[in-house]
Write a protein that binds this DNA or RNA. Structure first.
Length: 110
DNA sequence: CGGATGACGGGTC
DNA sequence: AGACCCGCCATCC
């Protein structure tokens, strides 16, 4: 499942569904997409998606502590933090404020 | 081809 | 609470 394109497609779809103003985690996406141990790979996919034609809200994906571990891969002028704050998500000390309340659990489409 | 490298996470101490 | 360790697995070199 991990090495299948199916997993990657699911991750892409799930990320696209993250609502504005909410965040989720690499682990939650990996688990939801059928490979709980591939959280690390989810990060790789998001990184690679930068060079694809996908336009993903990757700034809404943080680690299990709500930290913005991917910020280095965004433009300095239009950072991960800026994108989040633009949606009303407060970021303090490299971490999402009120993370547990803003956490969005990936779910199947209706 | 094999070891190093992570946008990670769970368990331990 | 927080630091640390270790399994994980596609890519990178």
């Amino acid at each position: 499942m991990k090495n299948s394109p199916d997993f990657a497609e699911k991750v892409i779809e799930a990320v696209m569904r993250i609502p504005r103003g909410k965040v989720t985690t690499y682990g939650a996406l990996a688990t939801f997409c059928g490979s709980p141990k591939s959280a690390r790979y989810v990060g790789s996919l998001l990184k690679m998606s930068r060079y694809s034609s996908f336009n993903l809200p990757a700034h809404r994906v943080v680690n299990r502590h709500g930290m913005l571990t991917g910020q280095a891969f965004f433009d300095h002028e239009y950072s991960m933090k800026k994108r989040l704050e633009e949606e009303g998500v407060q970021v303090e000390n490299n971490q999402v404020v009120n993370f547990t309340h803003l956490f969005w659990q990936p779910i199947e489409p209706l």
